[in-house]
């Protein structure tokens, strides 16, 4: 069985994230890392494998992004994935969801060709920079596989997968038959840290680099110039003007708080 985990290299959310002059996200000047939300995807893929003791399961991580994105793939290898595929091509820079999902889908197809099958594609619930939560659904659409998204619990038996998810007004159990596209939330369980052994082992694991040409994607189908959405401008939010801060002493805090709320007509 073959599992592909899609992981994204993103600018650190605690850093000063910003845009380039061409209004694409600055992915070079700001420190990047494996999206924390994709660590959960790697974790669930590894657990899927571990729970199926005795089966031959290969976990391949897949990332689409600039040179440095290889760091995200490496971290996933250190956590325990078996192989990595990094799609890197200058033409990809500035791609929107539609183009990114195209490249990811083509890469999954390429992995299917080399490995013989892809039974499970695991994604995070969102990338921490774009926060679209659309790529897994797009991948499912493109690959023609059922989508089972936003799982907080994943269980499987044979070719059956059952997940639990929080919906708007309910908690649901969703079932599907492999192959599927799965996405998991940060409720699915803490991701493991790479062990020293894992870090050493990762150095010897196979890491393939593909260009668009390797995937049979025409450079004219991706990138900023052909994106189906276009950013017109990006402005830093004006800093909030400093508010009034009081220190509570013997109930004065509650008085002041209620006074403030009343002055703003909230009471």
């Amino acid at each position: 069985m073959n599992i592909v985990v899609c992981v994204k290299y993103v600018p650190d959310s605690t850093a000063d994230r910003r845009f380039e002059d061409d209004l694409t996200v600055d992915r070079v000047g700001v420190d990047g890392l494996l999206s924390e939300l994709d660590e959960y995807a790697v974790e669930q893929a590894l657990q899927f494998r571990e729970k199926r003791d005795g089966e031959d399961i290969t976990v391949t991580v897949l990332t689409v992004g600039p040179e440095k994105a290889v760091d995200a793939a490496r971290k996933a290898l250190q956590m325990g994935a078996d192989k990595a595929v990094h799609v890197v091509d200058e033409a990809i820079a500035g791609s929107d969801y539609v183009a990114t999902s195209l490249v990811l889908a083509k890469a999954v197809e390429k992995i299917r060709e080399t490995e013989g099958s892809v039974d499970l594609v695991v994604c995070g619930m969102a990338s921490t920079d774009g926060v679209g939560s659309v790529v897994p659904a797009m991948l499912s659409e493109r690959l023609g596989l059922p989508q089972v998204t936003l799982a907080s619990v994943v269980e499987s038996q044979g070719d059956q997968v059952r997940i639990k998810r929080d919906n708007e007004g309910s908690t649901e159990v969703v079932g599907a038959t492999l192959p599927i596209v799965l996405s998991v939330t940060d409720q699915s369980g803490e991701a493991r840290y790479p062990s020293f052994k894992g870090i050493m082992a990762a150095k010897k694991k196979p890491l393939e680099t593909y260009s668009l040409a390797d995937l049979g994607v025409d450079a004219g189908q991706v990138g900023l110039s052909v994106a189906w959405t276009q950013v017109e401008d990006a402005a830093a939010r004006p800093p909030r003007t400093a508010g009034e801060i009081v220190t509570d002493e013997d109930g004065s805090g509650a008085d002041a708080l209620v006074g403030f709320l009343a002055s703003k007509k909230f009471i």
Binding site: R240, G243, E244, I245, V246, T247, D248, G251, G253, A254, D255, A256, L257, V258, F260, L261, A262, I267
Partner: peptide, 28 residues
Amino acid sequence: IFELVDFGVVGDLHAVLPAATEKVNERK
């Protein structure tokens, strides 16, 4: 969080909130 606020109270929520609740209910 205080960098964001229009109004902030430095204090223990277990003291401030019940007292504030009572005051709001009184006003109403």
